[in-house]
Design a protein around this nucleic acid. Structure first.
Lengths: 454, 454, 454
DNA sequence: CGCGTTCTAGAATATTCGGAG
DNA sequence: ACTCCGAATATTCTAGAACGC
C-alpha cells in the first residue's frame, strides 16, 4: 500500500533523515546566524523571506504550504505586527506584499475569495514564486527583482505583426512536440494495457495451478487408507460403513443435496477395492475440460496442474509473442474538439481490438528491438515451446495404467503418517484437516454455489 | 453645524437620527434602505465613506480629524474586519485605500512615519480630500473618480490578418485534438494504476498461498514423530539407526559436509524421543519469530493456504468490482501553464485530488458500461463472496483437537514412503528433506518476517 | 517500496466501503482542498462556475446537462440565494448571468420558451459555452472574457489584432496546460512500466516456484511402488545403493558435483529397478522440456522451490528498490532539439529528479510518520534480506547425504494414513472431504468457465 | 545603480444598473 | 418579453513612482 514510487525512496531517505532538526536549528538561531544562511548574490529580501517562512517558530503566522511550493500568511495583521519587524524595518503588510510582487511573487487566489460570507479565509494570504520552494534555497538565485519597464514604447503597429507570427510559429512547434510526446505516451499506454491483460491471464493461470495443487493436497491428505492419492467417493462409503453406519443416512442426504449427479451411486455400498481401479480413476475422464471434478481423482488434479502449469508458460510466452499480431482498430486520434467523442470505447470483450494495443503494432514496427526486449522471454523460462509435448504428455497421462496394488496401502498409511512427522500423540492435526476441509468446502462453494449446500 | 444644503437635509436627517444606532441600523440595513441614504449623482463609495466617518458608534476605529478636514483610521486591521464589511463587499483595508486614492484622497503623512517600532502610530492612517469635509456632504458632488487614461491604439498591420486568423483556427483545432487524446491517455493510465494495485494484491496473495503450501509440505515431509510441524534432523538419526547402520559412516561424512553446525550431534545416537523434542530442534527456533509455526500445525498451514487461496479469489474479484465505486477526488485540474508548471501539486496530503484520477470519473460517467466491463471480474472466478466462512473456518482450525496416537508412526514411515512413491529400497530422501527444511527455515524467516501471519 | 502512486491508496481504502457517496468527497472538502481545485491563470469566475456546476451537493439547483456540454440552473431564485453567495460576493442571479455573458456563455433556449405560464420551465435556465464542458477543465483556458470594445472603430485591423493576441494567449495557456498534463502522464507511465517489469519478475518467480512444487509433488506422489511416474535420479541411485552398495562411491561423487552435468553417463544406471521407472511414466517426458527434471530430485525440487520462493520475495522487494536503476523500455520519444527541453527525459534512472516527486520530499520532511506509513512494506515481507542464506542452503542441498534405509516404510504407510487424519476408526469427515472435493471441482470450473483447462 | 519603504496608479476582473436589439 | 451588452463602479492584485539608503 505504499504509495511512494520505489525510485524516490532512497532520495527521500536522504532528504529527511531527521525532520525535526531543521526547525530546532532555526529556533535557536539568532540574527547573526540567520545572516549566515544568506546566500551570496541574493537580495536581502529573499533571504529574509526564506528564513521567515522556514522558521517553524512562526508557523502560526507564516509557513510553507503543504507542498512546499508556496507560503501562507494567516492573520496578516498579527503577522505584520509581530513577524515583519523582526526581519524588515517596517510592519506594513502592504509593503511586504509590494516587495513580493517586485520579486515576481503572486498571490494564490482562493476559491472562497469572493464569497459573500467571508469567514476566516480572508485571513489567508498565499504567495508563490516558481523559484521559491521549500528546501531549495539555491533556487532563490533565479528570483530576480523587476526592473523598470522597457522604455521603448514602439508603436504597436507592424512590430506586433511580426511578434504575432513568431508566436504562432512557436506555438506550432510546441504543439508538434506535444503531439509527438502524446503519441509516445499512448503507445506506452497501449503496451501497458497489453501487459495488464497478460498479467491477468498469468495470474489466472497461477490461480488455477495453485487451486489444483491445493485440491490435490487436500485429496491426498484427506483420503483414507485405501486411497492415498485420491479417493473420490467410494472412500466415504467405505469409511461410512466401517466407522459410522448410523450417520450414513445423514450423509446420504447430504449427497443428495450436494451431488445431484450421483444419486445412482448413493445407495450403493462401497464398490470395494475393485471399484478403486474402476474407470473413474481413469485420467481420461477428467482431463477433459468440462469434466466435473468428481470424476477427477487427485492424481488427475496433479496431472492437470502440471499440464496447466506447463501450458501457462507456453501461453504466457505466446500471448506476448502474439501481441504484435493484434490489429487494434484505428485510434480515434483526432477527436473533434467540440463534440465529446473522446470517450474511448475500450470494450473488454474485444479487448484485443482495443485501440490501446495499436501501439504495440507500431512499436513492433518502429522499434523491434524494444519490442523484443519487452516480449522476449527474459522473464520466462520457455520462450519457445511446442505444443506437442503437452498434448503428447497428456496422452501419456491418459494412457496411464490404473493404480495397481492398493491393498497394503491401507495398512501402511498410518505408519507413513508417523514417519512423515505426524506424531501419534500430537499427530497430524487430522481434525484440523477435517476442519480445514470443511472450511474449504464451506467457503469455496460460498462463491458460486451457495444453494448447493443449503 | 448645519451647512447642509436644504436639498439634502431631509436625506441626512433620516440617515443618523440617533447617533448610536446608525451602525446597527446599517447592519440590519437591507439594500433598499441603503439606497435611501445614497445621495443622488454621488458614487456609492463617497456616500458610504461619509456615513462611515460620520458614524459616531465607530469613532474608535474611524472618525473625523479634529478639524474635520480629514478622517483618521486607527487600528486599521480591526477597522477592516469590523467596519468595512458593513459598508462594502470586502474587508480589505487595501481595497479601501484603493478607492480613496481613486477618488483623490491622499494619505496624510505623519511625523513618526519613518520611525521604526513606533507602535501606536503605525496604526494611525489619515486621509484627506479637499472636498471631503465634516458636515459638508454636498461637497461630495465635487469629488470625482479618476478615469482610466486614454489608450492610444494606433492602427496596425491589417494585412496578414486573415492568414493569422486561419493559422490560429488550425492551431486551436489541433490543440483540441491533442487535449482529447491526452484525456484518453490519462483515463487509461488511471485504470492502469488501478490494475497495478490489484495486481500487486493478487501477487501478494499468491505469494502467501505458495508460502503456506511450502510450509505445509515442509512440515509434512520433514517432521519426525514428535514434531509434527517440522522436525529437521532428528528423524534422520532414527532412520539411520534403525535401518542402515552400515551406511551410517558414509552418511556422517556427508553430514559433515552439509550441516556444519551439527557435527556434534552427528555421531551421537538418536537422542530418543526426549532429545527429539529438545528445544534446539524446535522449529520455533529458526522459523521466523513472527511465525508461530508451533501453533500452526502443518494441516493448519495447508488449510490456511486453501483459505487464503479462496480468499484471494474473493478479494481479487472484490477489488475489481469495487473499482467503479471509486470516487476520485476532484481534479485540481489546471496545472499552471506559464510558470510553476512542472510542479504538479506534488502535495501528498492532497494527493487524492490528483488529476490522474480525473479520468476514472469521466470514464465511469461517460461510459459506465465500459467501466464496468473493464472492472468486471472477467478473469476471476469469484465475483462476489462473503468473508465470513474463511474466518470462521480458521476458528475451527484453532479449536481443533490435539493429535492422537503416534506410536507406530515411527515404524510406518517407511511404508508410507513406499506408497507415496518412495520405494523402501529407494527410500525417501528424508535427508534432503531435512536440508530443505533447514534451508527453508533459514531463508523463509528472512523473507516473510512480520507480515507472514498477520 | 511499493510504487503505487500515493494518489490511489487513500482512494482505494475509501472506495469499497461506501460506493454510493461520490458527492461526500466534496462535502468534506476543506478550504485548502477547495483551493487546490482552482486553476491557475483562469479567471476566478470560471473556476467558481466549474466547481459550482460540478458540485454534486448542489445538483438540485445547478448541475451539468446530461451530455456535459452545458449546465442547468433550476429554481434560479433559490439558487441565487443559497449557492451564489458561496462563490461570489453577491446573490443576484442577474449578476451571475452578466458574468456568464461576459465569458461568452449563452442561454440555451427551450421549447416551451414562448409558452405562457409554463411554470416549471421558466425555472429552468441552461447556459452553454463551447469550451465549458464536463470533465474538461483544461478547456476553461480557452474561455476568454470579453474586453471592453475600443470606442474608435477604426479599420478591422486593430480590433482583430487584439483579438488575435488574446487568442494566442489563450492557446499558449492551453498548450502549457496540455504539456503539463502530458508530463504527468508520462511520469505515471514510467512508473507503470516499472511496475510491469516487477510484475513480470514476480510472476516468473511464482512460475518457477510452482514448477518446483509440482515437480516435487509429481515425484513424490505420482509413483506407487512399482510405477514411478518420476523417480529423481538420486533416489534411484539410492535404490541402487541399497541394492548395490558397491555404487556408493559413485553416488557420493554425484552429490558432490551436483547433478548439473548429470551423470547419467557417469555411473552405471540403476540396474534392476530401472524397470520400475518405465519411461512412459517418466514425468520428465511431459514436464516442460526445458526443465531437466531428471537432474532434479524431487526433494531437491521442493527445496529449490522453497529457496526460490524465498528468493522471490527478496527479489520482489529488491526489484522495487532497484527500480530507479531500471531502464524503461520506452522513452524513445521525440525530443525537440530546439526548445521544450521540459519534455521529460523519461529516463527512469533520473526518475528521482522528476518534479512530481518533489512533494514526496517535503512529505518525508514534514510528516515522516506518514511517509513511513506510505512507504512501508505492507505487501512485502522482507524489505531487507541477504542472499547468502539461500545460496548457502542450496549448497547444503547439493552436499546433502544420501538417503538411508527405507525398509519399513511400506509397512507403516497405513499408520501414517491414520495419523494423517484418515483414521478409519476416527472417522474423518471424509464425507465432507468428498463433498468438498466435488463442491470445489464443481464450483471452481464454473468460475473459470472455459479457460480452465483449454 | 540597486534595494527597501511608502504611497499611488494600472489593469483585470466583479458587480450593478440600465438599455439596445 | 427575452437575451445580451455597455457602462459605471467595486474589488483585487500588481506595478509605478518617489524617496532614502
Amino acid at each position: 500500500m505504499s504509495q511512494i514510487p520505489a525510485s524516490i525512496a532512497p532520495l527521500l531517505s536522504s532528504i529527511a533523515p531527521n525532520p525535526q532538526t531543521p526547525s530546532t536549528a532555526k529556533m535557536v538561531m539568532n540574527p547573526s546566524q540567520i545572516q549566515r544562511n544568506k546566500l551570496q548574490n541574493v537580495p536581502a529580501f529573499l533571504n529574509k523571506l526564506y528564513n521567515m517562512v522556514d522558521d517553524h517558530t512562526t508557523d502560526e503566522l507564516i509557513r510553507w504550504s503543504d507542498d512546499g511550493l508556496s507560503f501562507i500568511v494567516v492573520r496578516h495583521e498579527e503577522f505584520a505586527k509581530k513577524v515583519l519587524p523582526r526581519f524588515f524595518k517596517h510592519s506594513n503588510f502592504s509593503s511586504f506584499v509590494r516587495q513580493l510582487n517586485m520579486y515576481g511573487f503572486h498571490k494564490v487566489p482562493h476559491l472562497q475569495n469572493g464569497v459573500l460570507s467571508t469567514e476566516g479565509e480572508t485571513e489567508r494570504w498565499e504567495f508563490s514564486n516558481p523559484h521559491f520552494q521549500r528546501n531549495q534555497p539555491d533556487l532563490l538565485l533565479l528570483v530576480t527583482r523587476k526592473k523598470g519597464r522597457d522604455p521603448e514604447e514602439k508603436e504597436t503597429g507592424t512590430i506586433d505583426l511580426h511578434h504575432i507570427l513568431d508566436e504562432i510559429a512557436a506555438i506550432k512547434k510546441h504543439q508538434m512536440s506535444i503531439s509527438n510526446e502524446l503519441k509516445n505516451v499512448q503507445t506506452d499506454n497501449q503496451v501497458l494495457w497489453q501487459e495488464n491483460v497478460a498479467s491477468r491471464e498469468r495470474h489466472h493461470r497461477h490461480q488455477e495451478t495453485i487451486d489444483k495443487i491445493l485440491r490435490f493436497l487436500a485429496s491426498v491428505f484427506s483420503s483414507d487408507k485405501n486411497k492415498h492419492v485420491v479417493i473420490p467417493r467410494k472412500r466415504r462409503y467405505l469409511l461410512t460403513d466401517v466407522n459410522e453406519p448410523t450417520t450414513d443416512t445423514g450423509k446420504k442426504r447430504e449427497y443428495n443435496k450436494i451431488e445431484d449427479v450421483d444419486e445412482d451411486h448413493q445407495d450403493q455400498p462401497p464398490p470395494s477395492k475393485q471399484a478403486r481401479t474402476s474407470p473413474q480413476f481413469d485420467i481420461s475422464e477428467f482431463v477433459n475440460d468440462s469434466l466435473p471434478v468428481n470424476q477427477q481423482p487427485a492424481t488427475a488434479d496433479l496431472a492437470a496442474a502440471i499440464a496447466l502449469n506447463d501450458q501457462t508458460k507456453k501461453a504466457t510466452a505466446a500471448s506476448l509473442v502474439a501481441v504484435p499480431n493484434l490489429n487494434p482498430p484505428n485510434t480515434h486520434m483526432h477527436q473533434q474538439p467540440t463534440h465529446h467523442t473522446n470517450n474511448n470505447t475500450p470494450d473488454l470483450s474485444s479487448l484485443l481490438n482495443l485501440p490501446q494495443f495499436q501501439g504495440l503494432v507500431s512499436l513492433a514496427q518502429t522499434n523491434p528491438a524494444l519490442f523484443n526486449q519487452l516480449t522476449n522471454s527474459t522473464y520466462f523460462d520457455v520462450p519457445d515451446v511446442k505444443q506437442e509435448p503437452c498434448i503428447k504428455n497428456e496422452q501419456h497421462l491418459l494412457n496411464m495404467p490404473p493404480p495397481t496394488n492398493v491393498q497394503d496401502l491401507e495398512t501402511s498409511l498410518k505408519s507413513l503418517a508417523n514417519e512423515l512427522g505426524f506424531e501419534s500423540d500430537q499427530g497430524l492435526d487430522y481434525v484440523n484437516m477435517d476442519d480445514f476441509l470443511s472450511t474449504y468446502t464451506q467457503s469455496s462453494p460460498a462463491n458460486t454455489t451457495t444453494n448447493d449446500i443449503e
